[in-house]
Write a protein that binds this DNA or RNA. Structure first.
Length: 451
DNA sequence: CCAAATGATTACAG
DNA sequence: CTGTAATCATTTGG
């Protein structure tokens, strides 16, 4: 007995609550009731734990050799069997733990617990695909994979260790019980139950291991795959394409789902990245239109070129007002933008250009016109066309030159970006065009406005 | 090294 | 769910 409990504690630190350490007291040992002899034996058995090891050993031997021993033992076993069965009312088949299933699934999905290489690689591939990074993350790939392998290795060695310890302990307990079954009534079912208990204990430890492994993987994932941490700027070309679309749809820079998909394809980025880009672009453009004037003109000219190639002649003689064309024409009320200190000095200039309110009722405001002027070689920096005020251009140009154009109009709080409404939002869609529309867009603009 | 630029995320609203 | 506004975290250019 002493040995046993000692063993228990050193081996696993697991308390085996179900272990029938104490001998059940036979309340009604019917067959043995009248035999003083048997009562004596029982007494000796009951008090065996009070004795020293040597004493007990000797007693044990004596008892074992007693003539009544086999009979008594079988009776005890019978009783034990009965009580044992009644104890085991509910089937102790463990129900599949949903928590454990979740962990297992995740580990499998992450390629930690699956087959050696395949799982991990595919998990990495999927993760990177989700991150939407296209090209040069092979370094991160291998780094990530290395760490994952590391986790995987630790997980497996630990798992193996637990398994081994579990088996070792189980064998030990089984041997012990078998050994004791010579003096104690221990049925095979009892042993089986004991083994189950041990296994459950160990599997709960395993679950902890799985849990912490999952955590490690999650941390690894967030470290390596969180694009926020490791973000790459889009390629020049991608930015080009996105800007082209943005400025050629300046009046309604909200690409449809299909348009987004096409842009995503063209730019080798994901749709959500396109959405991000447009979200950022819109907000940043709106926040400081002046800063983007140059860019706007650049892309306006760009699209104008392509447009012109398609419809050059028609555009040439039309006093075109095009709501959907890039570059310049803005429509926004004064209150849309706040003045900040650095821009105050430009107020006079701004007022000259915009008149008192800066808003006007004409829907179109000469985007294409500005584009054309660019084409003609007389580049007009920071165009802010004022419809019906043809002389504004030259005045603005002159003053703009004297001040440095980008400075003069940058962040101009009075200019109303074409397509922006009084609430700081864009007007309703004017020309929903497809991705391929730098040409198309200009084209339709032209046809819209050329009469 | 610093500030600007920039892609992504978050909280919130409709 | 989409878009806005604010913010974070990283990259880039001087």
């Amino acid at each position: 007995m002493e040995e046993q409990s000692h063993l228990m504690h050193t081996l696993g630190g697991v308390t085996l609550t179900g272990l029938p350490v104490a001998l059940p007291v036979p309340h009604d040992g019917a067959d043995a009731r009248n035999k003083q002899d048997i009562g004596d034996i029982l007494h000796q058995i009951m008090t065996i734990t009070d004795q020293s090891l040597d004493e007990a050993q000797a007693k044990k031997h004596g008892l074992n050799c007693h003539r009544m021993k086999p009979a008594l033992f079988s009776v005890l076993c019978e009783i034990k069997e009965k009580t044992g069965l009644s104890i085991r009312g509910s089937p102790d088949e463990d129900p599949p733990d949903p928590q454990l299933m979740r962990l297992d699934n995740m580990l499998l999905a992450e390629g930690v617990s699956g087959p050696e290489k395949g799982g991990g690689a595919s998990a990495v591939a999927a993760a990177t695909a989700a991150a939407g990074v296209g090209a040069d993350n092979s370094i991160e790939h291998s780094d990530y994979r290395a760490k994952l392998t590391q986790i995987r290795q630790i997980y497996h060695t630990e798992l193996e260790k637990y398994e081994q310890a579990c088996n070792e302990f189980t064998t030990h307990v089984m041997n012990l019980l078998r050994e004791q079954s010579r003096t104690r009534p221990i049925s095979p079912k009892e042993i089986e139950r004991m083994v189950n208990i041990i296994h459950r204990k160990f599997s709960s430890i395993q679950m902890q291991l799985k849990q912490s492994t999952c955590e490690a993987v999650m941390i690894l994932r967030s470290r390596f795959l969180d694009a926020r941490r490791k973000r790459r700027n889009f390629s020049k070309q991608a930015t080009e394409i996105l800007n082209e679309y943005f400025y050629s749809h300046l009046s309604n820079p909200y690409p449809s789902e299909e348009a987004k998909e096409e842009l995503a394809k063209k730019c080798a980025i994901t749709v959500s990245q396109v959405s991000n880009w447009f979200g950022n672009k819109r907000i940043r453009y709106k926040k400081n239109i002046g800063k983007f004037q140059e860019e706007a003109n650049l892309y306006a000219a760009k699209t104008a070129v392509t447009a012109t190639q398609a419809v050059a002649a028609a555009v040439h003689n039309s006093q075109t007002n095009s709501p959907a064309t890039p570059s310049s024409g803005f429509q926004m009320k004064d209150e849309d933008f706040q003045l900040d200190g650095t821009e105050d000095k430009n107020n006079l200039l701004n007022n000259i250009f915009t008149g008192s309110s800066g808003s006007y009722s004409l829907p179109g405001s000469g985007d294409m016109f500005m584009s054309m002027t660019s084409l003609n070689g007389s580049y007009q920096p920071a165009q802010v066309p004022v419809p019906g005020q043809t002389q504004g251009d030259s005045i603005r140009h002159a003053i703009g030159q004297s001040l440095g154009y980008s400075d003069g109009l940058r962040g101009n709080p009075l200019y109303s970006p074409h397509g922006l409404n009084g609430n700081g939002g864009w007007h309703d869609a004017v020309t929903p065009s497809s991705v391929t529309s730098p040409i198309e867009g200009a084209n339709s603009v032209h046809s819209d406005t050329s009469n």
